[in-house]
Amino acid sequence: MAILSKKDTKLITDPFLDNNPITIQVLGICSALAITAELKASIVMSISVLFVLGVGNVVISLMRNIIPSKIRIIVQLVVVAALVIIVDQVLKAYAYELSKTLSVFVGLIITNCIIMGRFEAFALGNGPWRSFLDGIGNAAGYGFILILVGFVRELFGSGTLLGFPVLGDPIEKSGLYSIGYENNGFMLLSPMALIVVGIIIWVQRSRNASLIED
């Protein structure tokens, strides 16, 4: 990537692993537990957050010198809420089907702590271009974990991926089910998402000891 300096590239790649918003910064856990029961929802949520965080970071960064520090959190909330509502309304008017799929996530995006976390930690102190990269990087790191968890939960919980049965039919007892395999209903419940995230954190830290906090 010649257009990006080394420092800028790090903004994108760091949140993927060593500074992942979910596993290291522990931001956005709530949505990671709530909507990862199926892969499709994880992907839709990731894309939505990518958009809102990318644009939101730029807007906040452009406003960073005029935002009164006493009410900066409220200003951030207004910006993200306005952005999400604009997107929702435009989709409802011109892509109604898509907006039906997304409607659930609209509320979740506004309350998503990653958004506020990155506004507060990065966009308020950096220029728009770097803030944009930071937003994209963090949203991608968040989406990566979300999709990973969604993949595991849908595969073992429902035996499907993106709605397609991949392990056979549990009612007709075909495929894997013919030799006694059963779906794990626990996987569909939020606590299992926490356990899956926990396992990811464990694997990540055992591979890179410098990430372990005292």
Partner: peptide
């Protein structure tokens, strides 16, 4: 400048008007 109360209030009012208008 951005720490003054008057500025904060004016900013809040302006923001509400602008965002409310757009929406």
């Amino acid at each position: 400048k951005t720490d003054k109360n008057l500025y904060t209030i004016l900013f809040a009012v302006g923001m509400v008007v602008v965002v409310g208008g757009i929406l």
